[in-house]
Computed example of a mutant assay.
Amino acid sequence: MTTRIQKLFYGCLVFSISFAIFWYFPEIRKGCDIIVDGTVVNFSGVEDFIVPFINYTTLFYTAPKYKLISCGLRKSMTQLTMNLMCLLYNEQQYFEDNNSLNDTWKIKRRCLADEYNFYYPTKALKNDLETVRFAFIRDPIQRFVSLYLDKCVHEKRCYKCGTDMRCIVENIYLKLKAVQENQDNITVTYMEGHAAPLSWNCEFNTDLSKWQLLMMGADSYERNSSILHLTTILKKRGVNETLVEKIQQDMIAGETGHSTHKSAERIEAERQVREDPFIRDLLHKIYFFDYVVFPFKRDHLDPKYQSNFWTLPK
């Protein structure tokens, strides 16, 4: 499983470089012709899509003691990531404060008081060849569903749309379009910061190849594989084996609880995403290139986007 994902990742990385060329050189972008492996490929039908690799928002967590940097991808295990990195940043303080990996955002954490050192990796840490970068990544459309339920249904902070998913998706699309058309004057706003494509985060536009990606899939097999991947990283970085075992057990317990609970609101939101053509069209336009850049399954996308319609001409 891991080998297949790695192969997909490095294959997609080739395309991601091409997409970076696509965006930064308008003369190539005109007509939607892209150079892949030295061959011009026409990507007709994606001219109005949200492009990949805009340097929009960064949220790093660091554990200098272990030479670790993590990317906080909003609505992609961010709370868990922050709790984990708080633990690794200062283990003694973490346990004195009786923190846990399942703490919610409302719980105060003293690691956040030392904001600069925790959030901003030093140049020495970033340039150290032993430093490991990792990020939990989540299926983009499932990530949107989580965003919708949290920010729109529960917090009611979505563009004065209430819970109208059509209104919300349209606003996200238009706001992200405005960002990509005005990159010299980027302002990160609350909703766009949470809704931005994965590739717009954590300086992925310049150093994605340096990151180890932990795929948090919908099924327990993929989730457990990611947890095992993380524990391997922690062991290699010298984290005490007893602590690694505790982290693994707490994460599996948390994921088990998560996987057995599906609210009526989530079922309804997933139905809208699956059945409403207006919503599906805009979600494809917003997140399609995340499916190209990252090795996600595409079997729930519309048929055209499940296949490699960009196959190189023979």
Rank of each mutant, 00 (worst) to 15 (best):
N42A: 10
Y61A: 12
K67M: 12
N55H: 06
I50R: 00
V51I: 03
G72C: 06
F60A: 09
G31C: 00
K67C: 15
T58C: 09
T81Y: 01
M77Y: 09
P52K: 15
F60D: 05
F43K: 01
S76R: 10
S76D: 14
S44Q: 11
M77I: 04
V41A: 03
V41N: 02
P52S: 07
A63V: 13
L73A: 13
S76P: 09
F60L: 00
P64Y: 13
D48K: 04
L59M: 12
T78M: 14
I69E: 03
N55V: 00
L68Y: 12
Y66A: 09
Y61D: 10
V36F: 02
G38M: 11
C32M: 08
S76G: 10
I34W: 09
F60W: 15
L73G: 02
I54V: 15
L59K: 06
G31L: 04
D48G: 13
G38K: 08
K75Q: 11
E47N: 03
I69C: 07
Y56W: 08
S70W: 03
G72I: 04
G72Q: 07
G38V: 15
D48L: 05
K65D: 09
K65N: 14
C86M: 05
D48A: 08
A63T: 05
V46W: 04
N55E: 10
L59D: 09
N55S: 15
K67I: 10
M85L: 14
G31N: 11
G45K: 00
K75P: 13
L80P: 07
G72H: 07
L59C: 09
I69D: 04
T62L: 04
I34H: 05
C86H: 07
T57Y: 15
L59I: 12
V51A: 06
S70I: 02
D33E: 15
V36P: 00
F53G: 01
L68P: 11
P64F: 13
T58D: 12
D37H: 11
V46A: 15
T39Q: 10
I69R: 09
F43G: 00
D48N: 13
Y61T: 03
D33R: 09
C86L: 02
F49A: 02
L68N: 11
M85E: 04
C71H: 01
G72M: 05
F43D: 00
M82C: 12
V40I: 11
E47A: 05
Q79R: 04
T81Q: 10
K75C: 08
C32N: 12
T39D: 06
M82G: 10
T58R: 06
C71L: 02
F49Q: 01
L68D: 05
D48W: 08
V51S: 04
E47R: 00
D37S: 15
K30D: 05
R74P: 04
V51D: 03
S70K: 01
C32W: 01
V40G: 00
M85F: 14
T39G: 02
L84M: 01
T62S: 14
L73M: 13
M85D: 03
G31T: 02
R74Q: 07
G38A: 11
T62N: 04
V51P: 03
V51Q: 13
A63M: 10
T78Y: 03
C71A: 08
S76H: 07
M82R: 11
C71K: 02
T39C: 02
T78E: 15
T57P: 02
F53S: 01
M85Q: 08
